[in-house]
Computed example of a mutant assay.
Amino acid sequence: MAAASHTRTGHGALALVSVLLLSLAHGSLSLSLGLGVGGRRLMELYKPDPSELLTYHNGAVLHGAIPVSVLWYGRFTPAQKAVVSDFLLSLTAASPAPTPSVSQWWGTIAQLYLSKANGGANAKRATQVALAGQASDERCSLGKSLKLPQLAALAARAKPRKGGIALVLTAEDVAVEGFCRSRCGMHGSDARARTAYVWVGNSASQCPGQCAWPFHKPVYGPQAPALVPPSGDVGMDGMVMNVASMVAGAVTNPFGDGFYQGPREAPLEAATACPGVYGSGAYPGYAGNLAVDATTGASYNANGANGRKYLLPALFDPDTSTCSTLV
């Protein structure tokens, strides 16, 4: 198993650094150079190396019918499981919801990435996610302190189908190597089996300020009030944000040679290239202009199946080098 890990965090200072680095990488930051020509400062636009741009590296993507097999590791209530299950059901247009919708967000991934892979061979083929099955390991058979290789082993237990994704979700009392310190989730793959896997942890009791922001105050940076989560469960709504981000990476860069920016070992991908951006006008410490439910006061940017509302990450548009948001 070759795993590629990715970090998503609401850490204000890190978000600021990310924005500056992304600005440089995308060629959008002007550098002022004092060259002393008659007291005039010359402005020079930084032109990044092509390897620093989010581009297609001619590898495989996941497309067509993508079966997702879920493994719940640790204890989750039926209500908690329904939050994620309904999100997965919402990804397909077969589950209609008012706009802006989860299926609209998924369609953006297909439009910006999947349709352009393999010389555009996938352009006319609809890509849909299907919930293939769910299994539980409530007793935590591998213990409650997991190393990264064990995540791949758990993914294999989910029995993902060829061209599909195994989704491993760990409960809030399960510690995972690097969780909270350097990652909120990750995705990897089994190149031989041609399957991908995604892991995301419930951060409710370990690091909600890092992995469930903006539904919890960040550990560092601007301390704006936390937003109200749509499901009423900070940990689960945080998990959905991270599941969305990692699934976006898993389908567009499943085997490390698809769409990404930067080094292959630590790439920026479709969603992770837009850290902390959920709505228009976002900046470090502010998630952006979001919709607010008049009854519950919950903030969201996407409608889903069964009346659900979700907050989903912005997606990077390689053509314009901007972050595309639903609202």
Rank of each mutant, 00 (worst) to 15 (best):
E172W: 10
Y283I: 10
P263Y: 09
V240W: 10
A266G: 05
S299I: 02
A126L: 11
Q80H: 06
Q223G: 09
A117G: 03
G281A: 03
R194N: 05
S145R: 14
D317V: 08
S85I: 08
W213S: 06
D173K: 09
S28N: 11
R161E: 14
P48F: 13
L62T: 11
L21E: 06
V228L: 06
M186E: 12
Y283P: 08
P229F: 12
A270F: 08
T252R: 01
T99I: 01
G288R: 01
C323H: 00
A224M: 13
L42A: 14
C323W: 04
A166S: 14
C323M: 05
T252C: 11
P263W: 13
L21W: 07
G107E: 03
V37H: 02
F316K: 03
N202R: 04
S32T: 11
E138A: 15
P96M: 06
L62C: 11
A271M: 07
A25L: 15
T295F: 09
T322L: 15
L315R: 05
A60V: 14
G38W: 12
T7E: 10
A273I: 08
P208N: 01
P229Y: 06
V37R: 00
Y278R: 02
V168C: 08
G221Q: 04
A175P: 04
P96V: 12
G304Q: 06
M186N: 03
P284S: 09
E265W: 15
A191I: 13
Q111M: 05
A171E: 04
V240E: 03
S182R: 13
A193T: 04
S18L: 11
Y286R: 01
L290P: 03
S231M: 06
E177D: 15
P67L: 02
Q223P: 11
V61T: 11
A123I: 10
A266R: 14
A130T: 15
D317P: 04
V219E: 08
L89N: 01
P229S: 01
S203E: 12
Q223L: 14
L112D: 00
G258L: 08
K144D: 08
V247L: 15
V129L: 12
I66P: 01
R139C: 02
L169M: 07
A156E: 10
R139N: 15
G262D: 01
R75Y: 15
A226P: 10
L311M: 09
A282E: 05
P222Y: 09
L148N: 09
L14T: 11
R192D: 15
W106K: 00
G281Y: 09
F179K: 00
P160Q: 03
L24C: 00
F179T: 05
F76G: 08
G238K: 02
D317W: 07
K144C: 14
A305L: 06
A291D: 05
K124P: 02
Y278V: 03
V176C: 05
G38T: 07
S231Y: 12
R194T: 11
G279H: 09
L71D: 02
T295S: 13
D49W: 12
W213T: 14
F87E: 00
C211H: 02
E52Y: 15
A121W: 13
L114V: 12
G209V: 12
S136W: 14
G258W: 05
N58W: 12
K124S: 14
